[in-house]
Each structure stands twice: as structure tokens, then as C-alpha cells.
């Protein structure tokens, strides 16, 4: 079982190198240098700038230098914010983004599993239909629509929650977390319902029932373990999705997180920042996928034995 994990880990290393390389050379393909948008600068200043940022070296040398720095955790300086390094900016925005993602996934897991398991146990009753219809709406309603609508209702019409910000007004973390978590709550509800329905039909559940265990214990001690495997394997890809979602949510609610930095960098053509964050996000996503694979292996003996 550990061997399959290490094999995955071994695949992850070349993937990260490929991502880094592709991103590095793609950025170099971009028309126009990073200083084009500024006022016309004298040639000697431009030359100095290029020398400072190592842009006058041959591309392959730049690539080699970048990779060596990267291996030491140094993403280089930001083009747009002189004097600040990309590493510094990533670690400024990261805690906020992590906090947001953490609340969102907490909401998603709690609401999702609760309604999914209830729907499976109370199959074909209104406790099944109503949450599942809401889940379908949650899946179809994109984050960039749900967020503004929640702001409109709770922030502007009812005036009960702040419309933007993070950690500056009481309750301003509620709407962003719900906005980001909603779609995942919906997916998790559907997945846990499906997984539970399948598990509840298994022989060992029938055995547990035949032993005279209470329905509560059957569901919580026996079925949940197998029924939630689809949810766990969804968590890896969900983390990847959460990062994309954080771009939108941080833009809507003006939250100073990494996602907003990335979108701003994309607009400002802050190439080193884009390059750094892209690599950072990629590593993050690859690691999360790896982690959720490991979790699935731990939870599901069948998958363990098949390898």
C-alpha cells in the first residue's frame, strides 16, 4: 500500500517540474516585456532594470537560475511591486486564503454529509427530495452568481451582514465562506447519498441489522465508513476547485488573499508573480490529490488489496 503511495509521489515530482518548465517558457512567449506599460524609460534605465531582474541573460541561463532559486523556495522579485519578493507576497495572502478555504470546506462537509446521509436513510421521502433539489440548484448556481445574490439579500436589502472585507467587521467572514462552500456542500450531499445508498444494501449492514443493532448504530458505526469513501476521494479535486473558487470569492468580497493577488497579477502582467503563484498552486493541488488518494487507500481495504 505504501509502495503505491510512493509511486504516486514519484510521479508528482516530474509533474511539478513539467508545470514549472511549461509556465516559465509560456511567460517568456508573452508579447511585450514587463516594463512596457510604464512610462517611456530611458534605454540605460531599462538596461539596468533588465540586469536587476536577470532579463539580459540567455533564456536557458534564466531558466537554470530560476529553477535553482525555486528549489530553495525563492520565487524571485515581483515586477510590479518593487522591493517585494513573490515568496513574501504568497505568504502574505496565503493565511487568508487558507482560512477562507478551511471555513468553506468545513461548511461543505458538515452540511453536505448531514443532508446526504439523511437523504439516503430517509430515501424517497421529502427529507430526500428537498435537500437533493437544493443540491442540484447549488451545483448549477455558479459561485460568481451566488456571492453577489447573497450580498444583495443579506448585505444590501436586510443589512445584517457586511458586504465585503475579511476580519475587519464582525461577521464579514460568513458570506464569503458560505459562497465558496455552497457548491461543494451540494456535491458532497450527492456523493454521500450515493455512497450511503450503496453501502446500506451490503450484506454486512444486513448482518448488523440482524444482530439487532439500533438503526442509529448501523448507520454511524457501520455504514458511514464505507459510504463516505466517494466523499473522501472528492476532497482532493475539491481543494483544487476551491483555489479557483477563491479567485472569484476574493474578488467579489475584496479579500486580500492569494486568489485576488493572482487575478491582479494576471491583469498587471506581473510575470514573476504569475509564474510563482502558478507553480505554488500546482504543487498545492498535486499534494492535495496525493493526500486524498492516501486517505482513500486507508479507508478502503479493497483498494489496498488490489494493488
Amino acid at each position: 500500500m505504501l509502495s503505491i503511495f510512493f509511486r504516486r509521489l514519484l510521479i508528482a515530482v516530474p509533474v511539478i517540474i513539467i508545470v514549472t518548465t511549461i509556465t516559465f517558457f509560456l511567460i517568456r512567449l508573452a508579447p511585450g516585456g514587463p516594463f512596457d506599460a510604464d512610462k517611456v524609460v530611458p534605454p540605460e534605465v531599462l538596461k539596468n532594470l533588465n540586469a536587476t531582474y536577470n532579463l539580459d541573460a540567455p533564456v536557458l541561463v534564466q531558466y537554470k537560475d530560476y529553477m535553482i532559486n525555486l528549489a530553495q523556495g525563492d520565487f524571485g522579485p515581483s515586477f510590479r511591486y518593487p522591493g517585494r519578493s513573490v515568496t513574501e507576497m504568497i505568504f502574505t495572502g496565503l493565511p487568508t486564503t487558507f482560512e477562507l478555504a478551511f471555513y468553506a470546506i468545513l461548511i461543505a462537509i458538515f452540511i453536505g454529509i448531514l443532508s446526504g446521509v439523511t437523504a439516503a436513510v430517509k430515501r424517497n421521502t421529502s427529507l430526500d427530495y428537498i435537500p437533493m433539489t437544493i443540491a442540484m440548484i447549488g451545483i448549477c448556481m455558479p459561485t460568481f452568481l451566488l456571492g453577489p445574490i447573497l450580498v444583495l439579500i443579506f448585505g444590501i436589502y436586510l443589512e445584517v451582514l457586511p458586504v465585503s472585507g475579511w476580519g475587519s467587521l464582525p461577521g464579514d467572514k460568513i458570506l464569503p465562506s458560505i459562497t465558496l462552500g455552497a457548491a461543494y456542500a451540494a456535491y458532497i450531499a450527492r456523493l454521500s447519498r450515493g455512497g450511503m445508498l450503496e453501502t446500506l444494501n451490503q450484506d454486512y449492514i444486513r448482518t448488523a441489522r440482524a444482530k439487532g443493532l439500533s438503526e442509529f448504530r448501523v448507520v454511524f458505526n457501520h455504514a458511514l465508513r464505507g459510504g463516505l469513501i466517494p466523499v473522501v476521494s472528492f476532497l482532493g479535486p475539491a481543494m483544487a476547485g476551491l483555489i479557483g473558487g477563491s479567485f472569484v470569492v476574493e474578488t467579489i468580497f475584496q479579500i486580500p488573499g492569494l486568489g485576488r493577488f493572482y487575478v491582479e497579477a494576471a491583469f498587471n502582467r506581473d510575470y514573476t508573480m504569475i509564474l510563482g503563484t502558478t507553480i505554488f498552486f500546482s504543487v498545492l493541488i498535486i499534494l492535495f490529490n496525493l493526500l486524498s488518494d492516501l486517505m482513500v487507500l486507508l479507508m478502503n481495504p479493497q483498494a489496498r488489496d488490489n494493488t
Binding site: V15, V19, T23, I243, Y262, T278, S282, I286
Partner: peptide, 10 residues
């Protein structure tokens, strides 16, 4: 394994 959304933005 690649983060494609980020790549499309790129």
C-alpha cells in the same frame, strides 16, 4: 494533475 484553470488564465 495539472491545475488547468490556472493554465487557462495564464
Amino acid at each position: 494533475g495539472l491545475p488547468f484553470v490556472i493554465f487557462i488564465i495564464l
